[in-house]
Design a protein around this nucleic acid. Structure first.
Lengths: 106, 106
DNA sequence: CCAATCCATAACTTGTTAGTTATGGATTGT
DNA sequence: ACAATCCATAACTAACAAGTTATGGATTGG
């Protein structure tokens, strides 16, 4: 299982977070599409995607010579759990999110 | 204002996160108490505390020659907001899926 | 007043990581 | 079959971050 720690450091890098955010916003994207936006080289993007994949934050689907990546926001669940413990103040706001993620788990 | 990015990298380090968690769990602590738990030298702890303070995650109160640190979980707010947005992308998709399933039932 | 304590900063070392270029495997189109 | 495209990996470099020891300021106790 992925820990909140791995997710924190996985999303700690700005470029990597931007890639994940783009996948969330715009849906499935090829490596090349992500590279155009990222402002870094294609191998750099591939490495970031490997890290995100290890965290379970993205899924890849090969189609011909293209690889399509998509976001898996459910993988944020351990972060939600961590936050609900340490951000007691926002307990209520988070209960709703937790419910949603649990429904997805089923 | 502190961005979610600064919080992600601020909490990305395991030692730093452990310090913050200890402050959340056990309340106000001196630097020395934190050092005993942290497993690293006192200057290392001080540097981590400086980072956490820059993120607004801790507050320090000097009393004599001791400095008491305490957690400020409210500073996690930008992270909560970030999560709401990007866990929300999942919800939209889930809703669309629900719609689709409903239409298929008919 | 002097020694001891608590902490922060400075200076430095080292390990990690994000970036690069080079390359090769797999696939497609001609 | 061949050239071109898409992507991942390897190998390397450079930058940063986290650790160390050394030091000094501030405070307390004797």
């Amino acid at each position: 299982m992925i820990t909140s720690g791995e997710l924190f450091s996985g999303l700690g890098d700005p470029t990597r977070r931007a890639i994940f955010e783009q996948l969330c916003r715009e849906g499935e994207q090829t490596v090349w599409m992500l590279t155009e936006q990222a402002g870094v080289s294609q191998p750099a993007v591939s490495k970031h995607l490997a890290v995100l994949k290890h965290c379970g934050l993205v899924h890849d689907r090969r189609q011909g010579r293209e690889v399509h990546y998509s976001a898996k926001p459910q993988a944020l669940a351990p972060l939600v759990d961590w936050m609900s413990v340490y951000a007691g103040f926002w307990r209520e706001r988070f209960d709703r999110l937790e419910d949603l993620l649990k429904r997805m788990d089923q």
